[in-house]
Amino acid sequence: MQWSSFVAFALFAPTHALIRFGCSQLVVDRLDPLVNPGQNPSPHLHQIIGGNAFNTSMFPEDLDPPKVATCTTCQPSEDFSNYWTASLYFRARNGTYKRVPQKGNVGFEGQNGGMTVYYMQNQLADYQQLSKVKAFQPGFRMLIGSPEASTKEQADKYPQLTYTCLQDMNTRFPETKDFPKKPCPAGIMVNVRFPTCWDGVNLDSPDHISHMSYPASGTFESQGPCPASHPVRMPQVLYEVIFETKAFNNQADWPTDGKQPFVWSFGDTTGYGNHGDYVFGWKDDSLQKIMDEACYVNCKSMKTQSIDAMNACSIPRRVNEDIGDENWLEAIPGQPMIR
C-alpha cells in the first residue's frame, strides 16, 4: 500500500500513536560506542543519525543525550537518540569498492541521506494503534541482529531484519533475508525492526539484546503476548534505510560469476549479517506523551523541525580515512577480508 493511502486514512480514523519521521545523516564513521566503547577506530564503518552528542564512548552514567546534545538530525526536535547501521559498499568487477550513499524516503526527499524511523504500538497497517506501550527510559540501549550471521538459519534468529528491492519508492514487498540478486531500480531498502518486550529492569545487557525479547507466541504484528520474563510491552522501533544503487545497477559492472555485488562494511556479501543499534535520547517524557496521544504520523505533542534544520546538524568524523565516497578503494576500511 502506498504511504499516501496511510496518510489519507489517518485523517479520518480514530487512532493511537504511530510516528514516522526522517533523520538526516549525522556522520559516517568507524565508531561503535555500544559494542566497542572507547575503541577508535571500531572494526567497521557505520552510518549514524540523531543527536550530536554521539561520540566514541557513550556510557549511560557519563552521558545524558538530551542535556548534552545541541541539535539533532531527526524531524522531532526533542529526539536526541542515536540510531545506526553498518554502511554498504559496491564491489566492482575489478575488485575495488565504493560506498553506496543513502537517500530520503517518501516525504523526506530533501533530507541529507540518513534513514526513516518509526515508533509503533501495533503493526504498520493497523490505523487504530490501540495497544498501550511504555516508552524507553533514560539510559536505555539495544541492538538487534548479528554481523557474524552468514546463513539463513543464523539470520532467522532475528525474524524482522529484511531487504526490499525497490521497483519504485512505494515498493514494500516482497521482503528477503538476504541481498537482492538483481538490480533494484529505486534502491535497496534495509528494514531493521527491534524486539518489543522488555524485562522491566535492565536498561542494557552484556550482549545488548537479552534485556529485550520477541513475543512468547505470534509476532508483534499479531499482538502476540510478551513472555513472563519480559512482561513490559514497548514501542516497536523500525528503521528503513534506502541505499541509492542507481550508479551501480549496470550488470556489466557486476561480478562475472553472477553473484550480487553489494557488501556490508563488515565484509558480509550474503546480507544475513544485517543489524542495527539504538541509544535512547528523547527529552524528558516527550516520547511517552506521543505514544499516549490518539494520533497517526501527525501528532500534536511531537515538536518538529524543518528539513533544513535536520540537514544543518552534523559532527566531524573522528577517524581520518578514505571511506570511498569519491575514490574507489582497494579494501573496505577495517575489512581486508571479505566473506
Results as ranks from 00 to 15, higher is better:
E78I: 05
W282H: 08
E330W: 09
S81W: 11
V263N: 09
P215T: 10
Y163W: 10
D207G: 01
L26K: 07
C165T: 02
S265G: 09
S4T: 15
F173M: 14
W198I: 06
Y119P: 00
F136S: 08
F266N: 03
L329T: 06
H208C: 03
Q111C: 03
M310L: 11
V133H: 07
Q129P: 09
A247F: 05
C165P: 12
Y239P: 08
A186Y: 01
A294W: 04
K132F: 11
W254N: 06
R318I: 02
N311R: 05
G104Y: 10
A13E: 09
D199M: 00
G22K: 07
C74Q: 04
G104C: 08
S265N: 02
K157M: 11
L203N: 15
N94H: 08
F59D: 12
Y119Q: 04
P215G: 08
S306M: 00
E148T: 12
R30Q: 12
K152S: 12
R193Q: 15
C165A: 01
P60H: 05
Q47S: 13
L31R: 11
C226V: 12
W264F: 13
Y239I: 07
N191W: 01
T270C: 01
H211L: 10
V263Q: 09
S24K: 07
S205M: 01
G50P: 06
M120P: 03
P101T: 07
F136M: 13
T56A: 15
P235G: 07
V27S: 01
R93N: 09
S81A: 10
R193P: 00
F9M: 12
N311D: 14
P37M: 11
Q111G: 02
V201M: 11
K177A: 11
I49Q: 08
K300G: 09
C23F: 09
N94T: 06
I290F: 05
N320R: 06
D62P: 00
K259N: 14
Q154E: 15
S222E: 10
P147Y: 09
W328H: 05
P227C: 07
A125T: 14
F80L: 13
C71M: 11
Y89F: 15
N202W: 05
